[in-house]
Amino acid sequence: MTWLVVGLGNPGPTYAGHRHNVGHMVVDELARRAGESFSAPRGMRSETVETRLGSAGIGVVAPGAEKVVLCKSRTYMNESGVPVGKLAAFHRIEPSHIVVVHDELDIDFTQLRLKVGGGDNGHNGLRSIRAHLGTGDFARVRFGIGRPPGRQDPADWVLSNFPAAQRTDLEIEVDRAADAVELLINDGLPAAQNRYNS
C-alpha cells in the first residue's frame, strides 16, 4: 500500500520561510534524506517525490519497504485539498495512509503532536483536505508554532518568518518532525505518539 505524505504550505519563495510553511520544510527534509528532487507531475497541481521507506530508512529499496509519495501543493493553503484529492485518486491511496504535516498555533514551538482525525481548528489547509477526501480521518503531524504575542493577528503571525534566534531550533524541529513521519509509517501511530507526544 502506498503512503502519501503532504507538507502544507504556500507556493513560491515569498512564503518559503513562513511559519505556515513548516509542512513544506519537513517534506523537503524527507526528500533530501531520500536523495530525490521534486518534480511536477502533469495535472496534479503539486510537486512530488516518489520513494521507498522501510526499516533501513527513506530512499532505500529493501524488502518490506513501502512506497511513499511526498507532496508539496502548488495551490495556496486554502486549496490544499485539490492536489491531495488528485494524488490520492491517482495512486489509490486510502485516507488511513495519508500523513499531513502542518503548523499548529495551539502547540508551543519545539513541540510536536501526532494524531488521526479531529477537527481542523481553523486551519484552512486541513479544512480543504477534509472537504476533498470526504473525511478527516488521516494522520496529522502537528508542528507547534505557538500563539502570537500580545494582540498580533494569528493570520499575520503564520505568514511571517521565524526570527533569527529560532533558526537553530527550527532546523532541529524540522528534523524531528521528519523522524516522526518515518516512525509513524514504519512502526504505526501509537509508537510515534509515545515518542513524540511528550
Rank of each mutant, 00 (worst) to 15 (best):
W157S: 09
R140S: 10
A164R: 15
I185M: 07
T110N: 11
F38Y: 14
L8R: 00
I129T: 11
T14N: 09
L8F: 00
Y196W: 14
N161Q: 14
V116C: 07
P41H: 05
P148T: 13
G9I: 03
E50T: 14
E173P: 01
E104G: 04
I93L: 09
T75K: 01
A139D: 01
R33P: 05
L87S: 05
S96F: 01
Y196N: 04
P149A: 13
R19K: 14
V116L: 04
R32K: 15
V6W: 00
V61D: 14
G150V: 12
H91D: 06
R52L: 13
S37P: 05
D187Q: 15
S39M: 04
G122A: 05
P163H: 07
L4C: 06
T14K: 15
G17N: 14
S37M: 12
L105G: 07
M1A: 11
G81Y: 00
V5G: 09
N124M: 02
I58A: 08
A131M: 03
D187R: 14
V27T: 14
D28V: 10
H18V: 04
S128W: 00
N186S: 13
E79W: 01
S55R: 15
G23K: 03
L114H: 03
P41M: 06
F162I: 12
A139L: 00
S160C: 08
V99D: 00
P149T: 09
D187A: 15
G134E: 03
W157T: 04
V69Q: 07
V61C: 04
R140P: 10
G81Q: 00
R127P: 04
R113A: 13
G85T: 05
P41C: 05
E47N: 12
R142F: 10
F162S: 08
P95E: 06
E36K: 15
N186A: 10
E182K: 14
G122Y: 02
A191K: 15
R147G: 08
L8K: 03
E66M: 11
R142V: 06
A155V: 12
V6K: 00
Q152W: 06
D103H: 08
R147Y: 05
G35T: 12
G117Q: 11
G150Y: 13
N194S: 10
E29C: 04
Y76F: 15
V99A: 04
V61P: 03
G144R: 01
S73N: 02
T75Q: 12
P149M: 08
G9Q: 03
E79Y: 01
P163Q: 07
R127Y: 01
R167H: 15
G54Q: 12
V49I: 08
E104V: 00
H24F: 15
P13L: 13
Y196G: 02
G7P: 04
H18Q: 13
C71T: 07
V22C: 13
R142K: 15
V116M: 06
P83R: 02
V68M: 11
T110L: 06
A31D: 12
